[in-house]
Design a protein around this nucleic acid. Sequence first.
DNA 1: CATGAATGAGCTTTCATTCAT
DNA 2: AATGAATGAAAGCTCATTCAT
Lengths: 200, 200, 200, 200
Amino acid sequence: MRKIAPTPTPGRPRDPETGQRILDAALRLLAAQGYSRMSLDAIAVDARVSKPTMYRRWSSKADLATAALRTLQLAEPRPDSGSTPADLIATLENFSRSLLRPNGMSLIGTVLAEEAHTPELLRLFRERIVTPRRAMLRAILDRAAERGELRAGADLDAAVQMLTGAFYARYLAQSKIEPGFARQLVEIVWNGLRKVKARR
Amino acid sequence: MRKIAPTPTPGRPRDPETGQRILDAALRLLAAQGYSRMSLDAIAVDARVSKPTMYRRWSSKADLATAALRTLQLAEPRPDSGSTPADLIATLENFSRSLLRPNGMSLIGTVLAEEAHTPELLRLFRERIVTPRRAMLRAILDRAAERGELRAGADLDAAVQMLTGAFYARYLAQSKIEPGFARQLVEIVWNGLRKVKARR
Amino acid sequence: MRKIAPTPTPGRPRDPETGQRILDAALRLLAAQGYSRMSLDAIAVDARVSKPTMYRRWSSKADLATAALRTLQLAEPRPDSGSTPADLIATLENFSRSLLRPNGMSLIGTVLAEEAHTPELLRLFRERIVTPRRAMLRAILDRAAERGELRAGADLDAAVQMLTGAFYARYLAQSKIEPGFARQLVEIVWNGLRKVKARR
Amino acid sequence: MRKIAPTPTPGRPRDPETGQRILDAALRLLAAQGYSRMSLDAIAVDARVSKPTMYRRWSSKADLATAALRTLQLAEPRPDSGSTPADLIATLENFSRSLLRPNGMSLIGTVLAEEAHTPELLRLFRERIVTPRRAMLRAILDRAAERGELRAGADLDAAVQMLTGAFYARYLAQSKIEPGFARQLVEIVWNGLRKVKARR
DNA sequence: CATGAATGAGCTTTCATTCAT
DNA sequence: AATGAATGAAAGCTCATTCAT
């Protein structure tokens, strides 16, 4: 009488949407409350599932939080206009926008705060967000180098870290970032990196 | 009948060490565990006092944590060698050392992560640490400007934020900061700020 | 494909006894210790459950205490023998027995003592106990009035309150109530209420 | 050089006002919060003394609370107009006013609620308040008996307890007591007690 | 004698996790 | 697979009482 399941995996299949809803809720709460304040009960309510449903997919709170972080993907345009300063400014303005989203800095804060307790959070945040963004900026500078725009010997990684780090420092100082900030940064760094043409 | 020196304060005097021990323990745990994981029980054990002793001095967890943060004071030498890059490098190397102390970055992380929940932490951290350091670097650049070393129109605040921010970005990318990093930063920024001498 | 009777409620069902055990323990402790001394730990031990099990059912101590009070139900026979004094005496003797149960008066005490702090307790006690009992006595007198036994103009509510209140006053004066007390009360009140027959 | 103290008790004498302030505060809080919620800290603040000052005079919370209760004294006029009903009504209206003072019933509640835990409270309350009031009412009825106004065989104590108890019952039912309530009570009881004149 | 400081034990409430259906 | 029920362990905070000055 039992119907043979045609699909290779027997039993009730998982609803793929459920997992996504859980991850979304987890990420939202992780950013809003921080890791230790984020409660699995709150995620369960938010995602409209029960807690064992979450435990079936992830083995612990840390596991779920890291899975949620893993879904973060830097998805931003990679400008390539030919003008190095313009590309840098465009990239940094995207960065600025993402930091200023609600709880944008809180998420960074919690991965740093939890480094001793849940180091995986920081590792994943690096892998998904920090490293790709750094690579984008680095690529812009590499193209500039190929075009012979840069003086020799400049530490391009240091330049990249100044450009992004300035936003952290600015937020830490004021919780806000003015429009035009990116332009000011690029002006100084570009001046510091580019090859000075011989004057006549 | 005259009382020359009446008892200065009635009642049993507080052991002045006790308060300090509590604040030390609180600051240590705040940095190590983050605000929300920091428990008053743990502080009490660490400081070898009972919890009511803590509550007699501070009215709540948030009150104690902010008091602990308030004791943070930036106490660093303010180099003034006459050489702008040398002064910048010396200041940044001090900064680097403080970030690399155990949980140096975690403390920054937790004040950011708690911004929504306990904004006083971030406010105090700014007042005690961020702003003074920014002022030190700014003063070095202001002296350079007075000596006529800088090109016109450069945004000195942006420069300061790049110099400090680069350390945050570096840590976020790697959890470590190489010796010599400060020098690389200063080279680029100094190049970007200084007045270019006419060539012959 | 049709599911005639789907699982009536999903998830693990509650043990119906558990909730009852908690309510019983709560009511016992409420009467024995008073509301503010009644501790959730003690209830948990008494009912052999964990505290979260209690919090799953009731959201706070006040909530649980009021739920426990709500289970109180006046379940007493409503005598209707045709003789007004006999009915009054029978009803009051039941009342007397319930007051003399262990902590019978303490429960009344705590709902009064908590009136400022947890007014719901008094409200529920009225609804479940005081009002029904008053109605029982009032009904006896109303039947007497219908039978033309009462003189005109007597305040029957006042009579009811004297009959019950005398027990409170007696307990307050002596912590005990003699057998025969109800009869004495009824004799006076009945004399005061009934229509005096013309004498010959 | 030391001056011999002329008073027989050496050392600093106690300020008698201090003790009174403490007792006043204790009684106020006992009525307002109930015994178990009444905190010695709150009393100390209210009376502007330190806690050891309280412990020097009374050995425990229970001791202080009973001492506070002991200060209660029924101080009411004892009407003696020649009219029994008028005297009863006047006495009961005083009683009513004292019950309706803020927390008048809460105090009764807490002494009942604490009977198991601190029986001394109930004992003292009886001695200071309940018994004297009962005696006042009883005296009115005794005078009536002497004047030959009462029928034989009536239980005068039961009558007294109905008259006072009705107020408890009324408050328990409604938290308020209407003006005129005393008159209604007395009408019924007086009818029930007095000697019926022969009719012709 | 009076003070402010200190304490051990307790309170209500919440959490991450596991169980039973 | 999914649910609601259950739990041990902890959290922040307060209390009656005692100590040291």
